[in-house]
Amino acid sequence: MRVVIAEDNVLLSTGLELLLHRAGFEIAAIAGDAAAFLTAVRDHRPDVTIVDVRLPPSFRDEGIRAALQARRESPGLPVLVLSQYVEQQYAAELLSTAVGGVGYLLKDRVSRVDEFIDALRRVAGGGTAMDPEVIAQLVQRVGDPIAALTPREREVLALMAQGHDNDTIAGRLVITDNAVHKHIGNIFAKLGLAVSDSGHRRVLAVLTYLSAVG
């Protein structure tokens, strides 16, 4: 699987390179700024991209803008955005470009290699990987409707919103697939959402719900 990385910090980009290489990814290019990243995406047509939010020259939100721009130029391009902090606003902007895999994770998560690689593969496959902190921000904001959920349902909701499929949720919570299915049915009923199929659409429905209600 071929990856293009937009990361100006050499320490971090070499770390990522090492980690991805060991996990069997092929690093097509490492770009130091937004323009180089966009060119690299055009040249290499990667399977997935990893973008740091802060890039030269101003070290503000160039990464987010570059990611959105790249997805406009190549619809469906999977993008995983990494940041030192997460902001629900950025997640909403990334999710607004509905087609293709989207991820938004704290850089801290990279150190949990297996989970990070899993998230990257999910994004590459058109899925979603949302940082638990983003979900926490969204859930905190929604308040009342979420309070109607049982603690277990809230756990399922958080994992679902992060982009995990039923199998993973079942594995993480040490419950059966069937139980996960039932919890999800309850969550959708309590939040008044139409039950959609598993996968990306479901995550989007939940995230849209979380960012729209308030």
């Binding site: 939100d61 905190q140 904001r141």
Partner: peptide, 26 residues
């Protein structure tokens, strides 16, 4: 870091940061 100078201020300026704060409000 976020108590010293919230990163969203550095990224988006006051208007962008307040947009995020108000959007996050319950």
């Amino acid at each position: 870091i976020s108590t010293v100078y919230p990163p969203i201020l550095a990224d988006r300026g006051l208007a962008g940061a307040l947009t995020a704060v108000t959007a996050r409000c319950g």
